[in-house]
């Protein structure tokens, strides 16, 4: 059974081929980061215009890579939501028409389920059940995962997603969009404990988080530093980045451990773009080692949005596949509303 997966929910066009027996055969990705950089953020209409130029060439490239033809496909999975409506519509239109033309079924995949299950594309594969920390530019959630489609939200950010906080803080520090990864690089050169920023909701009794206040705290700190030192030198900027990253990582690590403790689960699975953050990985690995917990990550290349996770989630849900024809998209879609696979 060979599944083609198509992702177009935001600013990355991803296409992949997943074989139920042989695993991931090919995946291609086009990121629009450069396209949106001069606008300081994702422009939805421009994202859609780019998706429609990319999706067919990427599909061809995957087939060529895997040495497969359209006749080899068993089903097509596409990201049905959540995401930008216009962007989702591009992948959905192409995927459904291709399946309709080929006479094969389609599967509408929840983007976050794709992320959640992406660590299963890594070796060793985590067994169910596990706690998932889904942390990206759009989402920050802790979930209890007992099987494909069995997701319980344990806690989530009440305002900004962690990745969003990285990007917004980076902008505030004068870094170019998307500044999150650059902020992390600068943080590596920062002096530990030079500055301390608040850890919002660190000790709240629940598993919820809040990151929007950190921006304001950084802004206040920058003003203080500028008043004291006359200007924000490169080193001071690195020091602030370090303090910011340290605050976010501590909150994520502490809340993840708390989720594991409360559920009694022993495995933590990290997914989403911020899952590539070195400091976060170090913090989680360190904490887990001391408590005999296991932490799993997706392959580094699959931390961002990608087609592989959509092809894989589709393959896990083959029994939900249906004949191609009428289709819809779901820009807003609650993950816990998904049926079990």
């Amino acid at each position: 059974m060979l599944v083609l997966g198509i992702e177009s929910s935001c600013d990355e066009t991803g296409v992949a081929l997943y074989d139920l027996d042989k695993g991931l055969l090919a995946h291609h990705l086009h990121t629009q980061m450069a396209l949106h950089a001069e606008y300081g953020g994702v422009v939805p209409e421009l994202a859609s215009r780019d998706h429609i130029r990319r999706v067919l060439p990427l599909t061809r490239a995957c087939l060529a890579d895997a040495g497969k033809t359209l006749a080899d496909l068993s089903a097509i999975a596409f990201t049905q939501g959540p995401g930008l409506g216009g962007a989702l519509m591009v992948g959905a239109s192409f995927a459904n028409a291709l399946a309709f033309g080929l006479g094969i079924p389609v599967i509408g995949v929840h983007h976050l389920e794709g992320h959640l299950l992406s660590p299963l594309l890594s070796e060793p594969r985590p067994d169910f059940p596990f706690v998932a920390l889904l942390v990206s530019g759009g989402h920050t959630q802790l979930m209890a995962v007992r099987g494909v489609g069995d997701y319980q939200i344990l806690g989530e950010t009440l305002d900004d997603a962690a990745g969003e906080a990285f990007d917004k803080t980076a902008k505030l520090l004068g870094l170019d969009y998307p500044g999150g990864p650059m902020l992390s690089r600068l943080a590596e050169r920062g002096t530990p404990h030079r500055f301390t920023l608040p850890r919002p909701m660190l000790n709240s009794p629940d598993l919820d988080m809040s990151f929007s206040g950190l921006k304001t705290a950084v802004l206040t700190l920058v003003r203080q530093v500028e008043a004291e030192h006359g200007e924000l030198t490169e080193q001071l900027r690195c020091d602030i980045c370090h303090a910011f990253q340290e605050a976010i990582v501590e909150v994520l690590v502490k809340k993840s451990l708390k989720a594991l403790k409360e559920t009694g689960m022993k495995r933590l699975v990290v997914a989403g773009g911020v899952g590539a953050n070195k400091q976060l990985r170090a913090g989680l690995n360190d904490a887990a080692a001391r408590r005999r917990l296991e932490v799993f990550y997706p392959p580094l290349a699959l931390c961002t949005d990608n087609g592989a996770m959509i092809a894989f989630a589709g393959a896990m849900r083959l029994k939900h596949a249906h004949a191609a024809g009428a289709f819809t998209i779901k820009p807003r879609w609650d993950l816990s509303a998904l049926p079990a696979a």
């Binding site: 859609s48 216009g86 591009v90 959905a92 239109s93 459904n96 028409a97 291709l98 033309g101 080929l102």
Partner: peptide, 18 residues
């Protein structure tokens, strides 16, 4: 804009399939 891309995406998918 979205309407144009629905027709174009569907046309591309159908054309590619055949």
């Amino acid at each position: 804009f979205t309407g144009l891309r629905i027709a174009c995406g569907i046309a591309q998918g159908l054309a590619f399939s055949a």
